[in-house]
Structures are given as structure tokens and as C-alpha cells.
Design a binder for these strands. Structure first.
Length: 777
DNA sequence: GTAGGGTTAG
């Protein structure tokens, strides 16, 4: 080959060579070969080299060299320069000044046709606006296309006001100018301005792009109704318009609508063929429906239409298989990616493992991945939070903010807030809220809803109400979370009032609201209000009946409760009989209790609580023979009483206890206090098998069956640290035993402090020797 | 190579 020669054949050969390059050393070798052949001045070579670097996404120094080199060649290649610029600008080490000076060098270095400026600006991404002053200097900014390109850069990357200024200064506007401006407004969340401009735009200038921009804009504001209206009104649709509508549905959780629209598209879509992007939306909808049959038909469709799989499609497929329960296929797709995996692929695989409960493999993958983004951290934090490992979730969050430059976003914070709620860790919750404010993390409605949830789970309804009041826009969930909070804290009146307010503000209560309000009435013994609420439900579900049975039972109307069960239009579930059994225990109704318990033994034979409750009913009626019979039945069936953990938060740290626990550093003090407490309360207490057993003073043979004693340890610890003078929050997951309840009342009276106890879903406020929940013990 | 559509985390 003659030196410096360049023709189609050599181009083809060298392009083939370049396409095989897989590492930086080979790039350098190719560069050396070019120099050897004196081809290095030819701009097509520069383009080839830079494209290779771009493909590898790694050899940074090489790209920088070539970037400088491409402006220094006698005939600089604008396209090669753009490729390099685009790539370089996405790198974290990119220096804007450097880019700007290179741009100016290039612009000043040679005469180029005016048509190149818009291309240069468009292709430069965020760097496009750096050309502005230069173009004004050269007088090129009056060219309509250049001007549009500049305006578009401002519209995309901000400030949007600068774009509007250019737009207003235009003597006449092309459709592209209107479209750029409208899309810009949508991009910056300025819905009103976008719609206003759309209405101002002359009707004959609106084209398929304008309409599609309106569809996408509305969909991004989560207003799918309006998006669909624009879609239906469009005079002409192409594949992009269909994709916009499909993706709108898919990204906003309207999977069924997306699939429905897709079927419509392939049946009567004006002869429009679905492409890769269409299928990405379709596959992601199949993922959220988690239906393996649907997954199968999509795979067949891809095969039939011979659609090429790109990395977006492959990742979507990986996710779909994982969500449909097929981890092997997901794993296979991940393995086939090989070196071409990107961050999203890794993340999809990590969340697949998390979904299958394989935390160890998820962690291994997370540690192995070369680059982690916010989603990677979020997947891990959420995964641990949802797998009952809240401490690990918190640790990862701390690592994230300590060792990475990544900024936690709303999704990170929602996981962390929810962990604080799970743990009942109020101090940590407050710290997290502070973090959100300091780092200016914007929360959406669902973010605020999580905050309300957290505060009510941490026992601070005051804060929960404050957040609710501060919200400018609320949805059904906001009301439901607060109503459930009131219910858990036994504040019935507030729950009923909140539902009225909800109706007044034009938000219709849903079945969850009704469950919350009825539960609140039940805990506060508001029979009249509860009846009214129940009667206002148009189609009461089985859970609403359960709440009503619970309410009737607690206030002692057990016969009416039984009649309601008999009248129910559907089959009663375990919750219904559970409420009846519980009420029978409280009101010592042996026969009704037996009836409910027998139903429950059929429905859930291994639930130990039912046996314990029945045995308690017999005990209260002094039918010791029956007590023994139930215990014997439990033993024979191998039903074990489940034990639970109790938590206390102190000084921002959560302390965890279980029966017989000796692991706490203040364990000795705790047990000493426990004995003292038992003595003070006029009961005999002693420690057996490292755990605490209480015996009734009057009947030394009768061991306490209720309570797991882990809460006793928790209570004692809470008392030990009580000198801090703060509200003590004892958090546990089983019903508080009577001793603890009595102890709490005593302490609240003697020390004049408020004590808040969390008992699974309920809260008990002890003030001045009284407990807030009237139906309790 | 002027404007519109893409995967993962709650």
C-alpha cells in the first residue's frame, strides 16, 4: 500500500482491524501503525481511532491525545472532533475549560461551511453552549439552524430562560424552534409554559414531533390521561409516537394499558412496525406483571419478527426473566453480556439476586462490579431493608456517603427512612431528615408519605401530623398512612375526622382508609362512629367485616359480632375468628371462644397464638383440666410458641433483646433490675435457663404463658438508661405482657415521664400512671 | 449529522 494512500479498500480493512480492538495497548499499536504509514493526518483515521476509544470507554489518555491531535491536523475533522468531545464530556475528569479552548481553537483554525455549526453544537452535548460567545463574535448566530441548535442546547441543559430569550428574539420561527422550546419547558418541569406555547403555536406548524413531545411531557408528569388525549388527537402517528405512549404507560406502572396499546399497534397500527425501543417498553411492562406466560410470548415475538437484541433489550429481558421467576435464564443473559455489561446490567442482576433472597450473591456481585452508580447502592440498601436486615441497610448507606462521591437521591432516602420506621429509631430518623434538608434532596409525595409512616412507627404522631400539614399536595396514601398512624396510637376521633377532611378535600377514601378508620374506632372503643363508617362502605370487603367484628367484640357486643359473621356474604377468614377469639378472651366468653378457636385450628393449625388464647380463656374460668388439654394438644402437634425480639433505641443506637439474652454489655444490670422489679410488683420472679419466668403470687404452680420475656429485658434496659430524661421508646413485636404494662404505668407515675411502647402495630402512651389504650389489659 | 421514543432501585 502506498504511503498516505486512502481508498475504500484500505478503509474497509482498517475499520475491520479497529473493530477487533479490545484494549488500550492495541489502540496504541494501531496508532503507531498509522504513523508508520503516514496516514495519521487523515481525518478518517482520527475518527476511526476515537470511535474505537469511545467503544472501549476506557483509554482516557489516548482519547485526550487524539482530541488535541484532531484540532492540530492541517485539515481537522469535525466529526472526529465531535466524537471525542462527546465521549470526553461524559467523563468525570473532564475539564470544561479545556473543552472550551479546544472548541475555540477548532472554530478559529479553518474555514468550514456554515452548516457544520449546528452539527457541532448539537453533538457537543452540554458543551454546546460554550460556542455561544464565539459564534456571536464570528457573526454566525443569525443563521436559523445555528440559532436553533444554540437554543436547543440552552433548552436541554439550561438555563431555560436563555433559550426563551433566543426564541423571543427570532424574527421568524421554524417548527423546530417551537418544538425545541416546548420540549425544553417539559424537561424542566414547566408544564404550564409548555402547554401555553403549544397553544400559541400555529396549528399548521404543529407536526408529529410537536404532538409526541406533548405526549412524553404529560407522561413524565405522570398524567397519563392527558398524554393519551394528545396521542388520540394526533393527526398522524409514527413509530416514535407509539413508543412515546407505550413508554409513558410502562414507566408509570400502567403495564396492562401498555400491553393493550401494543396489541392495538401490531393489529391496526397504520402499518407501523414495532422496533427495539417498542419492545423495551413492552418487556418492562411484562416484568412488572411478572407473568411467565407473557414472558414466553414476548420471547417468541422477538424471534418471529427477528428483532436484533441490543443492550437495552437484553437488560430488559434479563429483568423480565428474573421478575417472572426464572433466575437461570436471567443469569444466562448476564453471562452472555461478557465484557459488554454496563452498570444497568449489573444492577438488574443484583436486584434479581435480592429478589430471590440471595443476599450473599448480590453482595458478591456488588463488590465485583467495576463502576457503581446510585441505583447500585439503592438496590443494595433497599434489598437489605426488605430482607429483614435493617442494620446492614444503614451500614451501606453510611458507606455510600462516606466513601463515594455519589449523591443519595429520594429513592435512597425512602429506603433509609423506612428502615428507621421498621426499627422505631426516632433519633436516627431525625438525623436522616436533617440529612435530606442539608443535602437538598427533593422529596415527592411518596417520599413525604414515607416520612409520615416513619414518624408514626417511631411513636411520634406530632411529627407525623406536622409533615402531613407541611405537604402542599397529598394523595390517598398520605391520608391512609396518617389514618393508620392514628389507629395504631388509639386515636380514634382524629382518624374519623381525618377521613371527613379527606372527603371534603375531594379525595375518596379507599378500602385501606376504611380499614384504618375502623381499626382506630376499635382501639378507641368508638362503637357509634365505627358503625357509621362501616355502613358508609359501599361494598365492604372481608377485611372490613374483620374490623367490625373486632370493634363489636372489644366493646363487649359479642353476640352481635357473631351475628355479623353469620350474615357475611363471603367466607370468613382467620382474621375474623381471630378477632372473635381475642374478644372472647377479654370478656371471658368460653363457648364463643371455643367456637372461634376450633374454626382457627382448621384454618391455621400451626399458629401458636390461638392455642395460647384458648388456654387463657380456660384459665380465666379456672378450668385447669381444659388448660392442660390445650397445652397437650400443642405439644402433640409440635406447635411452638414463637419468640420475638424487642428493641430499644437509646442515644441513636438500637438495642435488641431476645428471651434469655445475655449478650448485651449491661446484661448483669438488666437482670438485677428485672429481679428487683418483679419483687416490687408483688410477684415472684426468678431466672430459669438464663431466661426470666414469672410466677403468680397466689398460685405458684401457674406459670405465666403470655409474653416472651424479651420485652422485660428491653423494659429494664429502658429503665436503666432513663436518667437521660427523654421519652423512652420500647419497640417490640409481640404483645406486651402484663408485668411490663404494670411496670410502665408505675414508672410513668413515679418519675413523671411519658413512656411510649410499640407493640407490633400498636402504640401505648403511658402518662401519669395511665395507659392511652383503654381496651388494653 | 435541526425538533419527538429506550433497560435497573422505592
Amino acid at each position: 500500500m502506498a504511503k498516505g494512500d486512502w481508498n475504500d479498500l484500505t478503509c474497509h480493512v482498517w475499520a475491520h482491524v479497529a473493530s477487533k480492538i479490545s484494549n488500550q495497548t492495541q489502540v496504541k499499536q494501531l496508532h503507531a501503525q498509522l504513523i508508520q504509514n503516514s496516514l495519521h493526518h487523515h481525518y478518517s483515521w482520527v475518527a476511526l481511532l476515537i470511535n474505537t476509544c469511545t467503544r472501549l470507554r476506557g483509554p482516557l489518555s489516548c482519547t485526550r491525545t487524539i482530541l488535541r491531535y484532531s484540532t492540530a491536523t492541517p485539515s481537522p475533522n469535525i466529526y472526529a472532533f465531535i466524537s471525542a468531545l462527546e465521549y470526553y464530556y461524559t467523563l468525570p475528569v473532564c475539564k470544561e475549560q479545556e473543552v472550551s479552548s479546544l472548541c475555540h481553537q477548532l472554530l478559529a483554525s479553518a474555514n468550514k461551511p456554515a452548516a457544520l455549526y449546528p452539527i457541532l453544537i448539537k453533538s457537543s452535548g452540554k458543551a454546546g453552549i460554550l460556542f455561544h460567545s464565539h459564534l456571536v463574535k464570528l457573526g454566525h448566530h443569525h443563521d436559523p439552524h445555528t440559532r436553533n441548535a444554540l437554543m436547543d442546547s440552552y433548552a436541554k441543559f439550561g438555563p431555560i430562560e436563555a433559550a426563551r430569550k433566543l426564541f423571543d428574539e427570532m424574527p421568524e420561527r421554524m417548527a423546530e424552534d417551537w418544538n425545541s422550546m416546548i420540549s425544553g419547558y417539559w424537561k424542566w418541569g414547566k408544564e404550564a409554559e409548555a402547554c401555553c406555547l403549544f397553544n400559541l403555536m400555529p396549528e399548521n406548524k404543529r407536526n408529529v414531533v410537536t404532538w409526541t413531545a406533548m405526549v412524553t411531557g404529560s407522561a413524565n408528569m405522570k398524567d397519563l390521561i392527558t398524554a393519551r388525549r394528545y396521542f388520540d388527537l394526533m393527526p398522524r402517528r409514527n413509530v416514535v409516537s407509539w413508543n412515546a405512549m407505550l413508554s409513558g404507560y410502562a414507566q408509570n406502572g400502567f403495564a396492562k394499558e401498555a400491553l393493550h396499546l401494543f396489541l392495538h399497534m401490531i393489529k391496526a397500527g397504520d402499518g407501523i412496525e414495532p422496533n427495539q425501543i417498542t419492545l423495551v417498553a413492552v418487556i418492562s411492562s411484562c416484568s412488572s406483571l411478572a407473568d411467565p406466560c407473557l414472558a414466553d410470548s414476548v420471547v417468541k415475538f422477538l424471534d418471529k419478527k427477528k428483532i436484533q437484541l441490543n443492550s437495552f433489550l437484553k437488560t430488559a429481558l434479563l429483568d423480565m426473566h428474573a421478575k417472572c421467576g426464572n433466575l437461570e435464564t436471567a443469569q444466562k443473559i448476564f453471562d452472555e453480556f461478557g465484557e459488554h455489561r454496563n452498570c444497568t446490567t449489573w444492577n438488574a442482576m443484583i436486584s434479581a439476586y435480592m429478589r430471590f433472597g440471595n443476599l450473599a450473591l448480590a453482595r458478591e456481585l456488588f463488590d465485583k462490579m467495576p463502576v457503581r452508580n446510585v441505583v447500585s447502592w439503592n438496590s443494595m440498601i433497599a434489598g437489605f431493608a426488605q430482607s429483614g436486615q435493617p442494620a446492614m441497610a444503614i451500614q451501606l448507606f453510611k458507606e455510600m456517603i462516606a466513601i463515594t462521591n455519589l449523591k443519595p437521591d429520594e429513592i435512597t432516602m425512602v429506603s433509609v427512612i423506612s428502615v428507621c420506621g421498621q426499627l422505631g429509631a426516632l433519633e436516627m430518623g431525625n438525623w436522616v431528615v436533617n440529612f435530606i434538608v442539608e443535602n437538598q434532596i427533593k422529596l415527592s409525595i411518596s417520599g413525604y408519605n414515607t416520612l409520615i409512616f416513619m414518624y408514626s412507627k417511631c411513636g411520634s404522631m406530632k411529627d407525623a401530623e406536622r409533615i402531613f400539614q407541611e405537604m402542599k399536595v397529598r394523595d390517598t396514601i398520605s391520608y391512609n398512612v396518617l389514618v393508620s398512624g392514628f389507629a395504631a396510637h388509639g386515636r380514634g376521633i382524629e382518624a374519623v375526622e381525618l377521613m371527613s377532611r379527606m372527603r371534603k378535600e375531594g379525595i375518596e377514601p379507599d378500602h385501606i382508609t376504611y380499614i384504618g378508620v375502623l381499626t382506630a374506632c376499635s382501639h378507641a372503643r368508638l362503637l357509634k362512629e365505627g358503625r357509621r363508617v362501616f355502613e358508609s362502605i359501599k361494598f365492604p370487603a372481608v377485611d372490613h367485616y374483620a374490623c367490625m367484628v373486632d370493634l363489636l367484640g372489644r366493646v363487649g357486643e359479642l353476640d352481635e359480632a357473631k351475628r355479623l359473621i353469620d350474615r357475611m356474604p363471603m367466607e370468613p377468614h382467620a382474621g375474623i375468628y381471630g378477632s372473635l377469639l381475642n374478644a372472647s378472651t377479654i370478656h371471658k366468653r368460653v363457648e364463643l371462644g371455643e367456637f372461634a378457636a376450633n374454626k382457627l385450628f382448621e384454618l391455621e393449625p400451626s399458629n401458636s397464638g390461638n392455642y395460647v388464647l384458648l388456654s387463657n380463656i380456660y384459665a380465666s374460668a379456672e378450668r385447669w383440666g381444659d388448660v392442660d388439654r390445650v397445652r397437650e394438644a400443642m405439644r402433640k402437634l409440635g406447635v411452638k410458641k414463637t419468640t420475638g425480639w424487642s428493641w430499644v433505641e437509646h442515644d441513636g443506637k438500637v438495642h435488641k433483646f431476645i428471651v434469655g439474652d445475655r449478650s448485651h454489655e449491661r446484661s448483669d444490670d438488666i437482670y438485677r433490675l428485672l429481679e428487683e422489679l418483679c419483687r416490687k410488683m408483688g410477684r415472684l420472679g426468678y431466672i430459669v435457663n438464663k431466661s426470666c419466668v414469672l410466677r403468680d403470687v397466689e398460685d405458684e404452680e401457674k406459670e405465666e404463658m403470655v409474653g416472651t420475656h424479651s420485652e422485660k429485658l428491653a423494659v429494664c434496659f429502658a429503665l436503666l438508661v432513663s436518667e437521660v430524661g427523654a421519652v423512652v421508646r420500647v419497640v417490640k413485636n409481640l404483645r406486651v405482657c402484663q408485668d411490663c404494662h404494670t411496670a410502665m404505668k408505675m414508672i410513668s407515675m413515679l418519675e413523671g415521664r411519658e413512656i411510649i411502647m410499640r407493640d407490633n402495630n400498636r402504640f401505648h402512651h403511658f402518662i401519669d400512671g395511665q395507659c392511652s389504650c383503654r381496651d388494653y389489659w
